[in-house]
C-alpha cells in the first residue's frame, strides 16, 4: 500500500496500480474511455484521463502513471480541463450522439464525462466529422454502428485477451478507421456464442449484440 494525495485528500492504493484506477477505486472520477483494468500496456489513446502531478511539468495521462508513495495529484486544474475538453470535443466530432436511439441509455460514459467536464454532447465549436462509413454493419452476432464508435479499441483488446486469435480488429486508416469482424469457416463454431465480451465492454453502444444472440452472458475477465 502507498499513500498519495489527490485533490487535497489522502488515498491509499495498491502498489503497481495506475493513478487512474486508484482514483476511481477511491470514488474519485477521472474521465477515461480507453482504460481497461489490468491491461499491461495502456494505449493511452483517448487522451481524457489527464491529471497534474507535482514534479511533472505538463499534465500526464493517469492511466499510464503508476502510483508512488507521496504523489501529490490534482485532477481539476485549468490545464487539465482544457486538454480534456479538447479531447472530448474531438471524440464527439466523430460520435453522433442520438440519445433516443442509443442502446446505452442512462449509463453512458460519454454523458458522464460531459457532465463532469461541464460541456455539451455536441462537437461544438468543432465540426461534425463527415466520415465515409456505413450506418450499420453486420458482424454476424452483433451490429456495429461506426458513427457511435470512438475507436477506443477495448473490444479488440478483450477479444484478443480471451480468444488469442481475435475476431475483431481495426481496419483501414486515418479517418476511415473502423472496427471489423473476421471469422472464417462456420459461424456456428465461432467463440462468440458463449463470449460477448466485446459488446459488454464497449462504452458507447457501437457494438450491440443482436437480439437473437442475447443468451450469452458476457464475460469480462
Amino acid at each position: 500500500m502507498v499513500k498519495l494525495i489527490v485533490d487535497g485528500k489522502e488515498i491509499k492504493a495498491d502498489e503497481g496500480r495506475s493513478v487512474l484506477q486508484s482514483c476511481i477505486e477511491n470514488g474519485m472520477f477521472i474521465p477515461n474511455m480507453c482504460f481497461i483494468k489490468k491491461r499491461q500496456h495502456p494505449p493511452a489513446s483517448c487522451r481524457l484521463c489527464f491529471v497534474e502531478i507535482d514534479g511533472f511539468d505538463p499534465p500526464v495521462t493517469s492511466c499510464t502513471e503508476e502510483v508512488r508513495e507521496g504523489l501529490v495529484i490534482r485532477t481539476d486544474t485549468a490545464a487539465v480541463r482544457r486538454l480534456q475538453r479538447t479531447a472530448f470535443k474531438l471524440l464527439m466530432s466523430a460520435h453522433h450522439c442520438e440519445p433516443k436511439h442509443c442502446p446505452v441509455k442512462g449509463n453512458c460514459q460519454l454523458i458522464r464525462i460531459a457532465k463532469h467536464l461541464n460541456v455539451g454532447l455536441t462537437p461544438k465549436p468543432l465540426e461534425l466529422l463527415e466520415r465515409d462509413v456505413e450506418e450499420e454493419v453486420d458482424f454476424a452476432f452483433f451490429t456495429y454502428y461506426p458513427f457511435r464508435c470512438v475507436l477506443c479499441g477495448k473490444c479488440v483488446y478483450i477479444c484478443r485477451q480471451i480468444n488469442g486469435h481475435n475476431l475483431l480488429t481495426f481496419a483501414n486508416r486515418g479517418f476511415d478507421t473502423v472496427i471489423a469482424f473476421f471469422g472464417s469457416g462456420d459461424p456456428a463454431r465461432f467463440p462468440c456464442h458463449r463470449c460477448g465480451a466485446c459488446a459488454s465492454i464497449c462504452p458507447t453502444g457501437a457494438l450491440v449484440r443482436k437480439p437473437e444472440c442475447k443468451r450469452a452472458s458476457g464475460v469480462t475477465p
Binding site: 486469435h165 481475435n166 475476431l167 480488429t169 481496419a171 486508416r173 471489423a180 473476421f182 471469422g183
Partner: peptide, 13 residues
C-alpha cells in the same frame, strides 16, 4: 495469426 490481423494490416496500407 488471426485472420483479422492480416486484414487489419492489409487494409492499413
Amino acid at each position: 495469426v488471426a485472420l483479422g490481423e492480416v486484414y487489419g494490416v492489409a487494409t492499413f496500407y
